[in-house]
Write a protein that binds this DNA or RNA. Structure first.
Lengths: 212, 212
DNA sequence: GAGCTTTCGCTACGCGTCGTAGCGTAACTG
DNA sequence: CAGTTACGCTACGACGCGTAGCGAAAGCTC
């Protein structure tokens, strides 16, 4: 679940509370509008109409289109989990297929790249994306490696700094490849592709550990 | 060089010709506006003023913001070349560093992701991006492999279909990793990172050839 | 219940950008 | 020269943005 916008130090305990149903309706309407219209043609007025709320209600909760869409799309990544399929290769294939399935959705395609593009000029937005979307993906990398080392498929890391750099590298390679395949090459990351990708990645990792 | 917009079957041979200087000024002004304002705050009226042309001239040549920005940014990739450094690893490191240098520019950061996001809902735009930006990068992958097989660093490919799939995979892995590192993780793809990445990729490739 | 506080729906508004139409002028061709 | 196309300029309607102001609704505290 997305924690939302408790930007104020703490929620005021008096007065009329904000409607949680309105929050859900707005995020749902945002995803629907993304599917039908795409990022650029999505307007906040239209989202408000779809959600059955006033436009001013939207602006009271979100600063603008960017923040709203980030929250709306972040929910899609809730279903991301690291399956235990017995081997590191099978685990990676499983989680990459999940990731590819999410990126295959039209609302994710049009929204993710757009907000990342915006985040290049908006540091708070980048932080919001990081905490609500990216970090949840990166956590899977760490879990996967921990499980693989426990199974003896990977040697235990001695230098924690080098381990962190390697984890970042793997994350950029996995997420980057799937995103590029799906959005730039515009071809599906199906099982065959994921198998080939996983094979190259794993051979590279097993060969790279130890030296240097 | 970008061929531009000779969408008509052939240029009309009569009448006043289009100013090539205006084209250059417009694309230059577009890049400058991207640096100062970013994608979302860039307006065609502002670009026209910077370029010293009328706004209507812009609309006579480009259908809209998307197409204009693609042409403006495509020029940045003209400098991409495959250096001959003696070994496949060194070649890859060199070209990846070039690619990372381009993606480090602010105009490329804000523009590339944005137009790709738009292209998810605009097939002609995706085709335009492919021919003027992506294909030029992918060509380097093919050249690099041809050179490596000539040097004996990679076994010659027997099945052309499998070779094409492998080239696509490598391309998505390389470009995706650099893009993700630069734009999502928002950290520079410096020499150390490129070395680590190249090592993993090469080990994966050399180990993956032959079986299956 | 009374009183206080905050949210909500609604309307209306100024602002900026979009994309186009219309006109007169400039540049080039046969 | 006449014919054709590009250009600069102005003006315009349309649309989304983001905000202000109002009255009503929904909760909490005493």
């Amino acid at each position: 679940m997305v924690t939302g916008m408790q930007s104020r130090t703490s929620a005021p305990r008096t007065g009329r509370p904000r409607s949680a149903a309105a929050d859900a309706a707005i995020l749902e309407a945002t995803r629907a509008a993304l599917v039908e219209l795409g990022w650029s043609k999505l307007t906040l007025g239209d989202v408000a109409t779809r959600a059955g709320v006033a436009k001013t209600t939207l602006y009271r909760r979100w600063a603008g289109k960017n923040e709203l869409v980030v929250d709306a799309v972040a929910v899609l990544f809730d279903e991301l989990e690291l399956p235990d399929r017995g081997s590191l290769a099978a685990d990676i294939e499983g989680v990459v297929l999940q990731f590819a399935a999410i990126l295959g959705r039209p609302e994710a395609k049009t929204a993710l790249m757009a907000v990342v593009a915006e985040s290049t000029r908006d540091e708070p937005l980048r932080e919001r994306i990081r905490t609500s979307i990216v970090d949840r993906q990166k956590r899977l990398v760490l879990e996967g490696r921990a499980r693989a080392t426990a199974r003896g498929e990977l040697p235990p890391e001695s230098d924690p700094a080098a381990a962190a750099r390697t984890a970042d590298l793997i994350f950029d390679m996995v997420a980057g490849a799937v995103v590029h395949r799906t959005l730039v090459s515009a071809e599906p990351a199906d099982e065959e592709w994921v198998r080939s990708f996983t094979r190259v990645l794993l051979l590279g990792l097993k060969g790279a550990t130890g030296q240097d």
